[in-house]
Every structure is written in structure tokens, then in C-alpha cells.
């Protein structure tokens, strides 16, 4: 356990391993991330609602895309971040990595929930159904339950380190779900259509709709980093609190 708190010597990550240094860095990044979020979401919302055309097939419902697709991308991206943090927690015992994973899991669950809910609101008028058990939807639902599992497992242990290590193992096991989600629409017949943006032969979205989508996605990414750092700071303060409280009871 003693090597947990010690930053790995000689590692490039060493510089950020100290919580004090991290807090300073997070503090100076925060206003930029908040500004980026508000700017991108402001411009993105304007373009999504006023500055973009209706679709030739789907009419005005295409505007649901501007929240549905960024939420779904973030659901995957946040999981990828958790998996990387989990690997560095298990292999290099990086002390902050566990906190990043812990702070990210509820955010990922929220994005996944948004992707599922807005997809349902889009599916009803266009496909004619709120929900179907096709490959894409089922695998995203599994992702949602994975996030809930990570949250539960992190808090299931008396010692925070053990909880973080256990959920790191689960996070790495769950990584197999990411390619399944991404390629489900290509591997199997699904109700969900294939990828429109992240495809080898270029996007199949008209630029007048692609730009609002990308700006919204940038806003969602800034939002994640902003709120995640906020939550990591909260976790660090909580760790200090626990240590002080322990000292007080011991000193009495």
C-alpha cells in the first residue's frame, strides 16, 4: 500500500502525480474549460436550432441529432478515458488515475443515459418505435449498466483504494464493449443506420449540418473535462478531510 502514494520515479507522469501540483493545474485550466464549454454550446445551440436546415427525409427531427450524437460520442470517449486511467492505476499505481476514473464514471453514465433517451425520442417519430433490441441499442444499454457497475463497485469497499482497483479491473474487462458498439451497425443488420461521420470514405452529412454537430461535440468535450476536473478536486479535498479526521480521532 505504501507505494500507492508515491509518484512513480522517472515517469513522465511524475510531474502531475503530486496532488498539490494537480490542483494548481486544474485551477488554472478551469476558467478556460468553462469558457470553451459555454462558447461552443452557445454557438452550437444557435446553429442547431436556427442556423441549420431541416433534413430532406427526416424534417425537423434531425435537430435531435445535435444532442444525441455528441452524447453518444461522449459515452464512448468517457469510457475510453476511464479505461486508460484504470490501466495506469493498475500498472503504474498512479494515485490520481483512480480519482479520474471515479470522477468520470457518473459523467459517462449521464451521457449514456442522454444518448439512450434522446435516441428514443428520435426513434419514435422516425422509425416508429421507442426501443428495439437491435445490436447498437442493446450494446449501448450494456455500456450504461457497465457505468452503473463501476460506480457501485468503487463505493462497495471500506478502503477507497480497493474500490478503485476493483472497478479498474471491471473497466478494463468492459473495454471489449467499445468496438462492439462502434461496429455493431456494420457487423449485424440493425435498425440503427451505419456511421455518418466517423467513416473511412468521409462524412455523409451535408456541411451545413456537420458543422453544428462538430461544434456541439466540442462543447460536450469541454463540458466533460471541466466537470471531471471539478469532481477530481472534490475527491482530493475529500481525501484530505478523511486524513484529518483520522488524525483528530487518533490524537484524542
Amino acid at each position: 500500500m505504501s507505494d500507492l502514494a508515491r509518484p512513480p520515479a522517472g515517469s513522465a507522469l511524475h510531474r502531475f502525480a503530486s496532488p498539490a501540483r494537480f490542483l494548481r493545474l486544474a485551477g488554472s485550466l478551469q476558467p478556460w474549460l468553462a469558457g470553451g464549454t459555454l462558447l461552443c454550446l452557445g454557438v452550437g445551440l444557435y446553429l442547431a436550432l436556427f442556423g441549420s436546415p431541416a433534413d430532406y427525409q427526416q424534417g425537423e427531427t434531425v435537430r435531435i441529432m445535435y444532442v444525441h450524437v455528441p452524447a453518444a460520442w461522449m459515452a464512448l470517449f468517457v469510457y475510453l478515458c476511464i479505461a486508460l486511467a484504470s490501466a495506469s492505476l493498475l500498472v503504474w499505481r498512479h494515485p490520481l488515475a483512480g480519482l479520474v476514473a471515479k470522477a468520470s464514471a457518473p459523467l459517462g453514465a449521464a451521457f449514456t443515459f442522454l444518448a439512450l433517451a434522446t435516441g428514443s425520442l428520435w426513434g419514435k417519430p422516425m422509425w416508429g418505435t421507442w426501443w428495439e433490441w437491435d445490436g447498437r441499442m442493446t450494446s449501448v444499454l450494456i455500456l450504461f449498466f457497465l457505468y452503473l457497475g463501476l460506480i457501485a463497485l468503487t463505493n462497495a469497499f471500506e478502503s477507497p483504494e480497493r474500490g478503485q482497483r476493483a472497478s479498474a479491473v471491471l473497466a478494463l474487462v468492459g473495454v471489449v464493449n467499445l468496438p462492439i458498439i462502434k461496429f455493431s451497425v456494420d457487423w449485424w443488420n440493425t435498425l440503427h443506420q451505419p456511421a455518418s461521420v466517423m467513416r473511412l470514405d468521409g462524412p455523409t452529412i451535408d456541411p451545413s449540418m456537420l458543422w453544428p454537430l462538430l461544434i456541439m461535440a466540442a462543447g460536450f468535450t469541454f463540458y466533460y473535462l471541466w466537470v471531471m476536473l471539478l469532481r477530481v478536486r472534490g475527491e482530493l479535498v475529500e481525501a484530505r478531510l478523511r486524513a484529518l479526521q483520522r488524525l483528530e480521532t487518533e490524537g484524542r
Binding site: 433534413d55 427525409q57 435498425l191 455518418s196 455523409t204 449540418m209
Partner: peptide, 18 residues
């Protein structure tokens, strides 16, 4: 007993489609 519509991955304004 149930008919669902499936759409493709193309998104564009009606004028562009025209």
C-alpha cells in the same frame, strides 16, 4: 404486426437532395 422505418446515414437539406 409492426412496421418500422429504417433510414440511411445520409443527412442533407432538401435543396441539396433536389
Amino acid at each position: 404486426v409492426e412496421v418500422l422505418a429504417k433510414h440511411d446515414e445520409n443527412y442533407m437539406p432538401p435543396e441539396v437532395a433536389e
